[in-house]
Amino acid sequence: MVRRALDAELARLGRPAKTANRADEQLLASLRRLLAGDLAAATGWEDLGERLAGKGYALREAGGGLALFALSDERRMCKASELGCSYGSLMKRFGTPFPGHRHQYLVQRLLGRDEGCGVLE
């Protein structure tokens, strides 16, 4: 019984650890400094997109939220929430969901209106 427990523990330790899908803290600090003014001043999704594109970035759908991507190489930089602007907070501020975002259930929950769920009935 002890041998089986040791074998199981050794097998567990031999597997690579899962890493969180988080950006490096130094990168996040730089991005926050670079984009804070644009994120704060944007008046809508189009305005925000233009401001970010001017600095070489774009927001794109990522799961139930948004992520920031570098336009130069399409590399994912971080989640929007890691910049201090979650998808939900931006949606509430702009009064409309991110264009083309598939998670429409968030619209009802956060904005109190039904934009369609995109599910075939």
Rank of each mutant, 00 (worst) to 15 (best):
G64M: 13
F98Q: 02
D114F: 12
R33E: 06
A29P: 06
L48A: 04
K79M: 11
M77E: 06
D114K: 13
A58T: 05
Q26N: 11
S30Y: 09
A80D: 02
C85W: 09
F98C: 05
Q26Y: 10
L31K: 05
G37Y: 04
Y87E: 10
D47G: 08
R109A: 15
L90T: 02
R12Q: 14
L34E: 13
E25F: 00
T19A: 13
S30E: 10
S30I: 00
R12D: 06
A42M: 01
R113V: 14
G14H: 06
L106R: 12
R51A: 07
A29T: 05
G64A: 10
S86F: 08
A53E: 06
L90S: 01
A20N: 13
S86D: 02
Y57V: 01
R102S: 15
L13I: 05
A80Q: 06
G56H: 08
A40Y: 00
E9G: 05
R32N: 02
F94C: 03
L6E: 15
C117E: 15
Q104V: 06
G64E: 11
G116T: 01
A80E: 03
L90W: 02
R22E: 11
L13W: 04
L39C: 08
D73V: 03
L13M: 07
G65V: 08
R15S: 08
R102N: 14
L13N: 06
N21P: 04
E115F: 11
G88V: 15
P97V: 05
A40F: 00
R51C: 05
E25R: 10
L59D: 02
K55S: 05
Q26V: 12
L35E: 06
Y105N: 08
C117N: 15
V119E: 14
K55E: 04
G65Y: 04
K18G: 01
D7K: 14
R60E: 03
T43Y: 09
R33F: 08
G100Y: 03
S89Y: 00
S72C: 00
R76W: 11
G118N: 09
A41T: 11
T96P: 06
Q104N: 13
R15L: 14
L10S: 13
L111P: 01
A40V: 01
S89W: 10
L90K: 00
H101W: 04
M91K: 07
K18P: 09
T43W: 04
K92T: 06
L68E: 01
L28P: 03
G44L: 05
A67D: 07
L59V: 04
A8D: 14
R4P: 05
L31C: 11
L10H: 15
D38I: 02
V119M: 15
Q104R: 12
L66F: 03
L35I: 00
L13R: 14
R60Q: 03
A29F: 07
V107Y: 01
D114Y: 11
R76T: 00
L66K: 07
A8T: 12
E74F: 10
G88Y: 07
A58I: 03
A41Q: 11
V2W: 13
R102C: 15
P16T: 09
R3N: 13
A58D: 10
L111V: 03
R15G: 07
K55H: 02
L83Y: 02
R60I: 04
M1P: 05
L71T: 04
L106P: 07
L120H: 14
A8M: 09
M91R: 10
D114I: 12
G56Q: 10
A11H: 14
C117W: 12
Q26T: 08
F69K: 03
E61C: 09
R102W: 11
G37C: 01
S72N: 10
R32C: 00
